[in-house]
Amino acid sequence: MTAIRNILGFFLSLRTALWLLGIMLLLMFAGALIMPGRQEFQALHGTPLFSWLRTQPLSITWWMWGLIGLLAVLAANTLFCSVESVLKKRKVTQWLLIIAPQVIHIGFLFVLLAHLMSAQGARQSQAAVWEGSVVALPGSTMTLKVRDINIILDYYGYIRDWEVDVEYLAAGKALHQDRIMPNNPSVRQGFNVTVKDLRARPPQAVLLQINREPGAAWALAGGILFMIGITTLVVLRIRMER
């Protein structure tokens, strides 16, 4: 019984959160020193985090493993503290002041979940394509056909704008047409297709970036919740002090 009470006390403590955050900061500082000097981290842009971690030496990844472990404990600590706070203070009149930090915490947990999902299930690939090229979408029966590439240059030769018309195909049958533009990716069935690079001189070509980010929607939801919570908290604090 004492052991359970101790474990509960550990997870319900703000001191635990501070220790965890402090150690995490130290690990990130260590990572910030290791990362710039190692080429291996370049591959992280094209590989899901967990797959990358499994193939890299512990001498450069120890701080990331440490961070993952601490984040798991911090997630549990956040959850326990939020539940306790709501239960303890549920009868106070300023309930928004009690709820707002918990909304922030839920947002934070959603963002953590998003990173976890992406670290496990993200898929990234690239393909250099021309008009008429057909690209396989990894792990899908669909293919992507590039119908048209239109690159607009200004007087000085800078790329001012571009459009890439694409068509999704399944078993040779057209399913959907889309247009990729700057900050306007083609998003379909979890795939996000953007243009990473362009070659303006004929034959015009583009480098397509084909991503699958299973955590993206969770990250957005978490971000929105976090913002609602923190904005409410700031407004309430300012109003209380007036």
Partner: peptide, 18 residues
């Protein structure tokens, strides 16, 4: 950071880069 993540997702297909 949220706006940066949304922009990165729209521009490069991912909301976080290492």
């Amino acid at each position: 950071m949220i706006f940066g993540g949304i922009w990165a997702y729209l521009a490069w297909g991912t909301y976080w880069l290492w």
